[in-house]
Simulated scan of single mutants.
Amino acid sequence: MESTDVNTAPEPGAALLMGAPDLVTVPTRQGLEAVDIIQRAAGQASHACGVGPVLHDGSGSTLGFLVPPGTADAWDLPGSACTHTNGRGMRFGDSSPTAGDTGWLLPPEAVGPVTDPEVLRAALGEAARLIEAADNCR
């Protein structure tokens, strides 16, 4: 096989664009807890899925988890929303957002392709319970 000396490797995040992931948005506090829960679980079990790319908004009020396409069709977790992105407005490979803009908390090139919706659902539920318990201790 001849070499063409042409780099045919996809750009970072290109696999995400092919399937236009859906986006689960949650309040920042709950989302940060969920990221920690998923990362701890992935570190403790070799078969556990890690967290995929996570966006933060410029106001600091929400985090968005990229999940597989089609997740929005059945997402019904109270306190969160899941929307189809169809790739609109998604910029991959830009891991240095400007102040006040939406940017990556966990950029695509630093983590797995997307977060498993069932893993995310469980982590968000656990995060909500932890936050409620902490708030009730005050």
Rank of each mutant, 00 (worst) to 15 (best):
Ser3Phe: 14
Asp5Glu: 07
Asn7Asp: 13
Asn7Val: 10
Ala9Thr: 15
Pro10Tyr: 07
Glu11Thr: 08
Pro12Thr: 09
Gly13Asp: 04
Pro21Cys: 09
Pro21Tyr: 06
Asp22Trp: 01
Leu23Gln: 10
Leu23Met: 13
Val24Trp: 00
Thr25Phe: 03
Val26Ile: 05
Arg29Phe: 04
Arg29Cys: 03
Gln30Asp: 02
Gly31Trp: 00
Leu32Arg: 15
Ala34Tyr: 00
Asp36Gln: 15
Asp36Met: 13
Asp36Ala: 15
Ile38Met: 03
Arg40Gly: 03
Ala42Met: 05
Ala45Cys: 10
His47Thr: 13
His47Gln: 13
Ala48His: 02
Cys49Pro: 04
Cys49Phe: 14
Pro53Gln: 04
Leu55Arg: 02
His56Tyr: 11
Gly58Leu: 02
Ser59Ala: 12
Gly60His: 10
Ser61Val: 09
Gly64Trp: 01
Leu66Asp: 07
Pro68Lys: 08
Pro68Arg: 12
Pro68Trp: 10
Pro69Thr: 14
Pro69His: 12
Pro69Asn: 14
Gly70Cys: 05
Gly70Tyr: 02
Ala72Asn: 07
Ala72Lys: 03
Ala74Asn: 07
Ala74Leu: 02
Ala74Cys: 03
Ala74Phe: 10
Asp76Trp: 02
Asp76His: 15
Asp76Val: 01
Leu77Trp: 06
Pro78Trp: 09
Ser80Met: 01
Ala81Arg: 11
Ala81Glu: 14
Ala81Gly: 14
Cys82Asn: 02
Thr83Asn: 14
Thr83Met: 13
Gly89Cys: 04
Met90Lys: 04
Met90Asp: 04
Arg91Val: 06
Phe92Arg: 12
Gly93Tyr: 07
Asp94Ser: 11
Ser95Ala: 11
Ser96Asp: 09
Thr98His: 09
Ala99Thr: 09
Asp101Met: 04
Thr102Asp: 07
Gly103Lys: 00
Gly103Asn: 00
Trp104Ile: 00
Leu105His: 07
Leu105Lys: 06
Leu105Cys: 04
Leu106Glu: 00
Leu106Trp: 01
Glu109Asp: 13
Val111Arg: 05
Gly112Thr: 11
Val114His: 05
Val114Ile: 12
Asp116Arg: 12
Asp116Thr: 01
Pro117Glu: 08
Pro117Ser: 06
Pro117Cys: 06
Glu118Tyr: 07
Glu118Ala: 14
Val119Asp: 01
Leu120His: 07
Arg121Ile: 00
Leu124Tyr: 03
Gly125Lys: 06
Glu126Cys: 11
Glu126Asn: 05
Glu126Lys: 08
Ala127Leu: 06
Ala128Met: 10
Arg129Tyr: 12
Arg129His: 09
Leu130Gly: 05
Leu130His: 08
Ile131Trp: 06
Ile131Arg: 00
Asp135Lys: 10
Cys137Tyr: 04
